[in-house]
Design a binder for these strands. Sequence first.
DNA 1: TCCGGCTAATTTGCATGCAAAGCCATTCAG
DNA 2: CTGAATGGCTTTGCATGCAAATTAGCCGGA
Lengths: 233, 233
Amino acid sequence: MTEPQWKSALYVLRGQIVSGELLGGTKLRASHLADKMGISRTPISEALIKLEGEGLLVRDKSGFTVRSFALEEVYDAIDLRGLLEGAAVKKAAQRGISDTDFQRLNQRLAELDRVIADGQVGEYDQLNHDFHVYLTALSDSDILIAEVQRAYRFPFAGPSAFPTLAADSKRFRTSLLIGQQHHQHIVEAIYTRDGARAFALMLEHARLAHDNVSIASSAREFTPQLALVKQSR
Amino acid sequence: MTEPQWKSALYVLRGQIVSGELLGGTKLRASHLADKMGISRTPISEALIKLEGEGLLVRDKSGFTVRSFALEEVYDAIDLRGLLEGAAVKKAAQRGISDTDFQRLNQRLAELDRVIADGQVGEYDQLNHDFHVYLTALSDSDILIAEVQRAYRFPFAGPSAFPTLAADSKRFRTSLLIGQQHHQHIVEAIYTRDGARAFALMLEHARLAHDNVSIASSAREFTPQLALVKQSR
DNA sequence: TCCGGCTAATTTGCATGCAAAGCCATTCAG
DNA sequence: CTGAATGGCTTTGCATGCAAATTAGCCGGA
């Protein structure tokens, strides 16, 4: 573990926040966290500052607090992710991609098909995430890539934010199929250099996640991550 | 000055970076900066971490370095700003704005008209910036507002990034007029709830800034901010 | 001249001390 | 009983010490 302490602290804290282990509104005290994690306050502070920059914490007069999101903001975050990913695939389409990239994409599509058919939810989640990353990278724009990554960090905004819903819901399984359809069409649009179509499809693709949020919302007690989201009357 | 020291350090450093006073590739040493600014290394570090989060610095194995941008990345940053502002005005349009907001917008448009006619470039810059902030705020989405603000920080991506070009160039003055035309149409589109039109116009509006960059590029020696931009071939 | 490796000088990451500021709870006036 | 003031406790912001790591300078060999 030659990893700096502020980085591990960052990972731990970010994990606790997005997993709902730390409720929105919780005050994070550097000194307390420091001895709970057995390190000094300096690396903890670095982590807290970074998390503030990511929008997961707010810093008021004295100290950091876990931000809580209104349901509306969750939808906004999802749309933001779609918008940025959409811009990325549009750019990729306009630029044109190589045949090898096209083949790799199709290979990944096939793998996704397989795990969907087999109902391997955990596998799907990982592959889906990687697929989105790969798509974004095709934009060849460091700035876009970085901003998309950033957008993934908002709660529920990542391309694979609902592992727990998993097998249960029929609606959820349907949305996987529709999503996969989107994936295929997006690849097609990129390959045929139809940037506008790729963009539009990606917006729509992200919108699918809205449904997942409302499914999760209606089964709130089974979705610990929702602790971050302000209960609206 | 009850302002924390890390904040003033942040402002100073950010200013020096985006103004081109610090060249891309410059290594920033906390200890050195600390005694140059007469404070300790702790607040300097906070500022550096924040600047890394803003994308203006990169942190390698040991230490922070001023990022340098390829010309292509400058265009990407401008487009990103347009994309986010576009999403904001689209949302504002779909939501609909109040008559008072509409009146305030028109009032601002009139002020902009006036300073353009009078050639008060400094005034224009400030008003233009405020106008863009106001438009963005109409989205009523904290997340979008924050991300737009963030996008402004990239070099040349802000809505008023070229004070120095100012009076000189005829092309620049023309672009002001076209930009103002965009402003008017965007307000119109928002008021008539035509989200798609508002979005498209905002993308196009940001694209105007591309021209400004190339104008500046061709007069590189008069544009110190360009020091951040990697000289291509 | 160019290059590899050695030592010395910085510089970073982390720990910790300390003053000032914020927060809490109790007390006291109305 | 409500609300403001007070005092103590906690926590932050900043400074600084220190070991480990990185960089820079220097020298000798090809």
